[in-house]
């Protein structure tokens, strides 16, 4: 499949600090690409370059066939963006926010109404379309932003930590919509996250730390790079079973707390063979698969901290109201 985003040796410095340090990657069409890394790893800087908000110090970024530095307008017209902080106009209604967006992206007038209503329905906000955005919850605002990001039919939708600060239910709701985008709307999704469970659903992942990509691949590939799954067996006779496994599969299983265990590439493929090799001996089987957290731990030597960040929006709104009163 053709690459819709292609990044080569991209570097961005802010004074002394190198926020992004020579990264390269490609994103295939109609997939979900995840950028996984801790805060300050360079995720937002990368997304800002791809969205043409800032220029790279060196290197190249091509989105939908256009150079982000040389042809920013062409890039902008083919992408949708959901920023980390809300960029909605809270004094307008949900519907008005969408109409505003449709106009500045040059959507044909006679299509605006239908597209706005479709997008609101898709994100489950149709009943609230004429409410002012300031009355929306955090989850609804985020969904409205996704709806807005889709209304001009972009090829790529960028999302910077789309579920940050949302409660679990809103996260699930939003995530359901996001995961349907490639198939239902033909949109490629590029998202940053530091949630492992979200990274798990991406088609491909790049793990970024300290401005560099330290590993990339599908979640499965990344996990297999740790040496694959481990199968645990409870048997009627461990010694006999160990021998039979060695005969049939050429692997010598270990024994721990009354259980046999053996390393395996993909456990679900190997388990039937193991059971066939041990007729009437197996009492129970389980297997453990390395998690993305294990992957991150292996490549960086530490775990991603799962911070719960409160959105700064509500504070800002209070301040704004204060300033207006005085």
């Amino acid at each position: 499949m053709p690459a819709v985003i292609s990044v080569e040796a991209l570097t961005r410095k802010f004074g002394q600090l190198t926020a992004v340090d020579g990264i390269s990657f490609q994103v295939e069409e109609k997939t979900i690409f995840g950028f996984l890394g801790p805060n300050g790893a360079g995720k937002t800087t990368t997304i800002s370059i791809l969205c043409t908000l800032i220029n790279p110090t060196s290197g190249r970024a091509i989105v939908n066939g256009h150079d982000c530095k040389k042809e920013p307008r062409l890039v902008r017209s083919s992408i949708g963006i959901v920023f980390q902080d809300s960029t909605l106009d809270k004094d307008l209604t949900a519907y008005e926010n969408l109409v505003f967006h449709a106009y500045i992206y040059g959507v044909k007038k006679q299509e605006i109404r239908k597209r706005a209503e479709d997008a609101l329905r898709f994100m489950g906000l149709f009943e609230r379309k004429d409410d002012l955005v300031k009355r929306f919850s955090g989850g609804m605002k985020r969904r409205l932003e996704v709806a807005r990001g889709l209304i001009h039919r972009p090829r790529v939708l960028f999302m910077d930590e789309p579920t940050l600060g949302l409660d679990p239910q809103s996260r699930a709701h939003l995530w359901e919509a996001i995961s349907g985008l490639p198939k239902e709307h033909g949109v490629t999704v590029f998202m940053t996250t530091h949630y492992m469970d979200e990274a798990e659903v991406c088609d491909r992942l790049a793990i970024i730390d300290g401005g560099r990509i330290i590993a990339q691949g599908s979640p499965g590939e990344l996990k297999r790079s740790l040496g694959g799954d481990i199968i645990f067996l409870k048997t009627a006779d461990n010694k006999k079973a160990a021998l039979k496994i060695k005969e049939a599969l050429g692997i010598t299983p270990g024994e721990k707390e009354g259980e046999l265990f053996l390393a395996s590439g993909r456990a679900e493929e190997q388990i039937p063979a193991v059971i066939r090799a041990l007729p009437d001996l197996v009492l129970s089987v389980r297997f453990q698969r390395p998690t993305l957290n294990d992957v991150f731990l292996k490549f960086t030597g530490r775990e991603i901290r799962q911070q719960d960040v409160q959105g700064p929006d509500s504070l800002k709104e209070d301040l704004r109201a204060y300033v207006r009163r005085h």
Partner: peptide, 18 residues
């Protein structure tokens, strides 16, 4: 400045307009 502070300006600045 308000729009800048509350993020809405970004929505305008990333739009494909001059």
């Amino acid at each position: 400045i308000w729009d800048k502070e509350f993020g809405f300006l970004k929505e305008i600045l990333v739009a494909p307009v001059r």
